Structures are given as C-alpha cells and as structure tokens.
Simulated scan of single mutants.
Amino acid sequence: MKPALKEQILTILAEIPPGRVTTYGRIAAMTEGATPRLVARALRELPAGHGLPWFRVITASRRLADHGGADEQRRRLLDEGVAFDSRGRVAAERLWP
C-alpha cells in the first residue's frame, strides 16, 4: 500500500467521533483510491499503542467484522453508548459522516 494512501486512511480514522461508527467502504470512498479491503489491511497493520479508534469501523451491513478483536470492539463501542440490535447491527443513526 502506498504510504500516502495509508496516511489518508489513518487521518480519516482519527476523525471518527466518539459514539459514532463508519464503514470500511465509507473510509475507502473518502480516499484517493483505497478499497474497503485496503482499509481493513491498514487497520490490521496498526502498531501496538497507536491510540487510533479502530474499533469505530464496522462492515457495510452495520455489523462487526469477524476478527480476533471483535469482542474488544463490541465492548469499546458499548462503552461509548453504541448499541447493537438483536441481529448485531448498529443503528444507522450512528453512522459517520
């Protein structure tokens, strides 16, 4: 991945406000050429202790992606007041931007 593209992804990630979520696809659309998969890759490659709100990024179906950090992601979102419905989806009103 080009460093400039990764920088765009991380800059957008840093802007997601507490209590809100966005999707891999929405972040990709705000960049100059990223795909949702590239966004996911950039998040997987975050170094330990980075402090970026990776947990605010969900799938286009408004669910958590199936990954090793999903339990922590759910906990952090719940701590910010983001609720999940019976199907595991976040309310559309919580989507940013």
Rank of each mutant, 00 (worst) to 15 (best):
M1W: 12
M1Y: 14
K2H: 14
K2M: 10
P3S: 12
P3G: 01
A4T: 15
A4R: 11
A4F: 09
L5Y: 09
K6P: 00
K6C: 10
K6T: 15
E7L: 04
E7W: 08
I9H: 02
I9M: 07
L10D: 04
I12W: 04
L13K: 00
A14E: 10
E15N: 07
E15W: 02
P18Q: 14
T23W: 13
G25S: 15
I27H: 02
A29H: 07
M30S: 10
M30W: 14
T31P: 05
E32S: 14
E32V: 13
E32Y: 12
E32M: 02
G33Q: 12
A34I: 04
P36V: 06
L43K: 00
L46R: 06
P47H: 06
P47K: 01
P47Q: 02
H50M: 00
H50L: 00
L52S: 03
L52G: 00
W54Y: 12
W54F: 12
F55V: 03
A60H: 08
A60W: 13
S61A: 13
R63I: 04
L64Q: 03
L64S: 06
A65T: 15
A65M: 11
D66F: 11
G68R: 05
G69Y: 10
G69C: 03
A70N: 07
D71F: 12
Q73I: 01
R74G: 02
R75D: 08
R75S: 09
R75T: 11
R76S: 03
L77F: 03
E80D: 08
E80H: 15
E80S: 12
E80W: 04
V82Q: 02
D85W: 15
S86F: 14
G88L: 03
R89C: 13
V90Y: 09
V90A: 11
V90N: 11
A91W: 06
A91C: 05
R94K: 07
R94F: 13
L95F: 12
L95H: 07
P97Q: 08
